[in-house]
Design a binder for these strands. Structure first.
Lengths: 211, 211
DNA sequence: CGCCCCATTGAAGGGTTTCAATTATCGTGG
DNA sequence: CCACGATAATTGAAACCCTTCAATGGGGCG
């Protein structure tokens, strides 16, 4: 991600987190953004009933934490799906740089705008896609995001559990499981635990209803 | 909204749109943000199958169009629910002002961040709320948003049709209609066409699962 | 006033959840 | 290295919620 390169001389505090460790908890004071160097993160909120609701999975290159800007409190929990190395960006320092550097400002605004578009797409996904379409879209999005990062491969290792996938997609683990087997019967995927091989990406995108 | 006051000397091109008129269509070049002065807007995308999917309703004071920043193309259609008066903000001009005016920068970033939080909440709504919870949350959000603007009233006039509500909530118009009658039977609402009276806001928030 | 569109209501069908039981996988300690 | 327990994942059957299809009722505008 360009932002990291632009800033690496200035803000370069790498920090590592182990699986299931929290980087931040919702409600805490907003200070930093996190650029993922390696590993994977998830963001979640805790509902009034105390249940977790995952609202994002993040891969190397992604920046996490924009939700905290408005209220200066993080609105999400951020935790590590696996051992993860992140680069911390101090928001106030970033603001100082941004105000002196219009291209950087543009970049930051683009990232925020991308985040908005990302959530808009997810909204659509939830509001009109059926369970199999959601899961197909989810698998495809992982494939696509790895490909964007130069790791184009039909083999994907899921860094999250079935429980996390179901939670994120607004389904139950049973439904996710059933759809995985269905997609295997259709010769679209082959699934072995956390390892997924995409056997027919055309059919996958067709089911996912994405171009 | 403060932003409008801050800028009204510089960017003050008011423009009016009639009911069902499009301010922008998805895919067109991004140039302006729209601050709603009076009336109401909706944003929507057109799916691959050509169906409309509404992803937001906007009231006076709201700013619409942030989704276009990243790609410099609007990702949503924006259209008027009723006759609507908006103030147009030229994005490039705004950027010039922003880079000279740190408090303004902060304000803009806050607005983007708020948009993100808004969509995150909607995501949660879709992914884990049932139909009656969604509709209750929708009605409550209208009440709340009007209250934020100083128009605290238990009487709400819906500016959108049942069809639009159903589309936005990812339900069918029949389901929306049935839930409206159910909420009346529970003495929570009284519904007469586009006019809604909230008879028991506590029960409403309880069903909506919002504090 | 009548037409058309919007909203409401009813019954049947499909998809997802829930509950329950079984199987697989992973980490740990013997 | 294998055995074991605990956790995760799969599979089945019944219940439930929402959709779909169909018909009726109501309200606004010419």
């Amino acid at each position: 991600m360009m932002l990291e390169n632009t800033l690496h001389t200035v803000v370069d505090r790498k920090q590592s987190f182990v699986k299931d460790e929290f980087l931040v908890k919702a409600g805490h004071d907003f200070k930093k953004l996190y650029v993922i160097h390696s590993g994977a993160l998830k963001t979640s909120i805790t509902t009034h009933e105390g249940k977790e609701q995952i609202n994002g999975f993040y891969l190397p290159g992604d920046i996490v934490g924009f939700d905290g800007i408005a209220s200066q409190k993080y609105s999400n929990n951020i935790s590590a799906l696996t051992n993860t190395l992140v680069c911390e960006l101090d928001y106030d320092e970033l603001m100082v740089l941004v105000s002196k550097n219009p291209p950087l400002l543009k970049m930051v605004l683009n990232l925020l705008s991308l985040d908005i578009i990302n959530y808009q797409k997810l909204m659509i996904c939830y509001s009109q896609k059926k369970a199999d379409e959601r899961l197909a879209a989810f698998i495809y999005s992982l494939y696509f995001r790895y490909a964007q990062r130069g790791h184009s491969s039909l083999n994907i290792k899921l860094s999250m559990s079935r429980h996390d996938i179901a939670n994120f997609l607004g389904l139950t683990i049973e439904t996710v499981s059933r759809i995985f087997t269905r997609l295997q019967e259709l010769d679209i995927l082959s699934v072995k635990g956390k390892y997924i091989h995409i056997k027919d990406i055309n059919k996958l995108t067709k089911i996912a209803n994405e171009l």
